[in-house]
Amino acid sequence: MSMDSDTYRPFDPWRPTPVKEESRKQIVETHYFNVDRVAFSSAQVGQFERFILHENNGDTVGVLAVTADGKIPFVEQYRIPTHRWTLEIPAGHANAPSEQYLDVASRKLREEVGYEASKLTQFTRFINTPSFSSQYTALYLATGLKEVDRSAIGPETPRSAVRLYTQQEAMEMVTNGTIVDAKTIIAILRLHEGLLEHIGM
Rank of each mutant, 00 (worst) to 15 (best):
A152K: 04
F33L: 03
T7N: 07
A117G: 10
L87G: 03
N128C: 06
A43V: 04
T184V: 00
S5V: 13
A161P: 04
A91S: 15
M173P: 04
Q135H: 12
F48D: 00
V104M: 09
V35C: 01
L109G: 03
A142L: 09
L141C: 03
E172R: 15
H83I: 01
R163F: 11
T129R: 07
I72Q: 05
E156M: 08
D149K: 13
T121A: 05
S23Q: 03
K108D: 08
L120C: 08
T86H: 11
L120K: 06
H93A: 09
W14G: 06
E55N: 08
R79N: 15
P16T: 12
Q167D: 09
H54F: 15
G46N: 02
R190K: 15
Q122R: 10
D12K: 14
S118K: 13
Y136T: 03
L109Q: 04
L64M: 12
I188C: 11
K183T: 11
P16C: 02
R190E: 14
F132I: 01
I185Y: 09
T166K: 07
T178F: 04
A43R: 09
A105R: 14
E21F: 07
Q122D: 00
P155W: 12
R125G: 01
I127F: 02
S2I: 06
A96N: 14
V113R: 03
A105T: 10
M173T: 07
M171N: 13
E169Q: 15
E116C: 11
R107E: 06
Q77T: 07
G177T: 06
T178N: 01
V28Y: 02
S41Q: 08
W85P: 07
T157K: 03
L102Q: 12
Q135V: 11
K25T: 13
S42D: 08
A187H: 10
R24F: 14
T60Q: 07
R9P: 11
H198A: 14
L64D: 05
Q167P: 01
A105V: 12
S106Q: 08
R79C: 07
L53M: 13
V28G: 01
I127K: 11
M1Q: 05
P81G: 08
G177V: 10
L120Q: 09
K108F: 15
P155N: 01
V19L: 05
N56Y: 05
I153V: 14
R190Q: 14
S42N: 02
E22G: 00
A170D: 08
T129M: 10
P18I: 03
T121P: 05
T175C: 09
M171T: 10
P155G: 04
A96M: 09
K146E: 14
T166Q: 12
I89K: 05
E169T: 13
E29N: 06
Y140V: 05
Q44N: 07
A117T: 12
R84M: 12
Y32P: 00
S118R: 14
R110Q: 15
E111H: 13
D181F: 13
N95E: 13
V38H: 00
T121H: 02
H198P: 08
N57Q: 07
A170K: 12
N176E: 09
P158D: 01
L64F: 13
R107I: 14
V19A: 10
Q167H: 08
N128I: 10
V66N: 03
I127S: 07
T60P: 03
V162D: 00
V180R: 09
A68R: 14
S118Y: 00
T30F: 02
G114P: 15
R15P: 00
L145Y: 11
R50W: 01
S133Q: 04
